[in-house]
C-alpha cells in the first residue's frame, strides 16, 4: 500500500477503485438499455425459426405479436382487459377505503389497536389465495368472489401501512402541535393525517399489486371472463402464442395500476423529496 495518496499511479490502487472509469455518455447508456432486450428478442426469433428451441413452448416473438394483434382487432383482449380492470378498481375501492380509515383509527387509538391488531396479525400470514374456495362459497361464482379477492389483497397491506404511518410520526411534531394549543381534532387534521400519508400511499401501492395477483388467480380458477380466464383458456386450448400475449397485457396492467398510485402520491404528497423517477 502506497502512502502518497495524491501521486499514486492508478495501477497501485485497490481493484475496486481501478474499476471505476469515467461514465459513458447518457446516450450510450440508453442505447444499451434499449438494445439488450431487443437483442434477446432477435435471438429468440432466430433460434425459434431455425428450430433450435421448441416452438410449441417458446413461439417466435413474431407469432406472439400476430396473436396479440388478432386478439386486439377482434376486441377479445379489450373485452377481458376491461373486466379485469373493473374488478381491480372496484376491489381496490372496497378493500382500500375501509383499510385506510381503519388503519388510521388504529394508529390514533391505542384501545382500537389493542383490540384489532391481534386479529389482523393472526389472519395476515394466511395465504390469501387459500381463501378463494371460501369466498366462492360465500359469494358464489359471480363478480362478488373475484372482487372480494382483490379487496382482501388490498386491505391487509393498506391497513397495516396506514396504522404504521400514524405510529411512525416523530413525536416532536405532536409536541409542536400541543405547544401551539392544538386540540385532539387539530392534531389529527394537521399532524396525524398528513404525517401518515406517505405510508398510506405506500400501502396502497403494494396493495394494488397484490390485488391484481389475487384477482387474476381468482379469474383462472372460477370465472368466465377477465385476463385470468383468458390465460387459463389459452393453456387449455394450447394456443401458446395467445398465452404469451395475455401475459404481456397482464404485466402492462400491473405496471400501469402501480403508476396510477404513484401519480396520486406525487399529487397528494408534494413535500417528499424522494419522489421516485
Amino acid at each position: 500500500m502506497s502512502e502518497q495518496g495524491v501521486s499514486v499511479p492508478s495501477e497501485a490502487l485497490p481493484a475496486g477503485r481501478a474499476l471505476r472509469r469515467p461514465r459513458a455518455g447518457a446516450k450510450t447508456e440508453v442505447a444499451v438499455q434499449l438494445l439488450s432486450p431487443l437483442a434477446l428478442l432477435a435471438v429468440w426469433e432466430i433460434t425459434a425459426r431455425a428450430g433450435y428451441i421448441d416452438q410449441r413452448f417458446y413461439p417466435a416473438p413474431s407469432s406472439i405479436v400476430q396473436a396479440f394483434w388478432d386478439a386486439v382487432t377482434t376486441g377479445v383482449l379489450l373485452h377481458h382487459l376491461k373486466i379485469t380492470l373493473g374488478r381491480l378498481a372496484l376491489g381496490t375501492l372496497i378493500g382500500g377505503v375501509p383499510a385506510v380509515l381503519l388503519g388510521l383509527a388504529m394508529g390514533l387509538s391505542r384501545w382500537l389497536r389493542l383490540a384489532l391488531d391481534p386479529i389482523i396479525a393472526a389472519t395476515y400470514p394466511l395465504p390469501k389465495s387459500a381463501l378463494f374456495p371460501l369466498l366462492l362459497l360465500i359469494f358464489g361464482l359471480g363478480e362478488g368472489s373475484k372482487v372480494a379477492m382483490v379487496a382482501i389483497g388490498v386491505f391487509y397491506l393498506a391497513v397495516t401501512n396506514s396504522m404504521e404511518g400514524v405510529l411512525a410520526i416523530n413525536p416532536v411534531y405532536l409536541d409542536v402541535a400541543k405547544t401551539f394549543g392544538a386540540r385532539r381534532l387539530d392534531v389529527v387534521r394537521t399532524v396525524a393525517l398528513p404525517g401518515a400519508l406517505p405510508l398510506v400511499l405506500a400501502g396502497l401501492r403494494l396493495g394494488v399489486g397484490t390485488g391484481l395477483i389475487l384477482g387474476v388467480l381468482a379469474e383462472m380458477l372460477g370465472a368466465r371472463d377477465g385476463l385470468g380466464y383468458l390465460l387459463w383458456s389459452a393453456w387449455q386450448t394450447f394456443s401458446v402464442s395467445s398465452l404469451y400475449a395475455v401475459l404481456f397485457v397482464t404485466a402492462v396492467l400491473g405496471f400501469v395500476s402501480v403508476k396510477v398510485v404513484d401519480i396520486l402520491r406525487r399529487w397528494l404528497v408534494p413535500w417528499q423529496s424522494g419522489s421516485r423517477n
Binding site: 416532536v172 411534531y173 409536541d175 401551539f180 394537521t190 399532524v191 398528513p194 404525517g195
Partner: peptide, 17 residues
C-alpha cells in the same frame, strides 16, 4: 392564548407544510 411558544432542539418543522 398560550403565553409561551417553544423552539425545539431537533428538526421540528412540519415537512408536509
Amino acid at each position: 392564548h398560550p403565553a409561551a411558544a417553544m423552539v425545539f432542539q431537533e428538526q421540528s418543522v412540519f415537512p408536509w407544510m
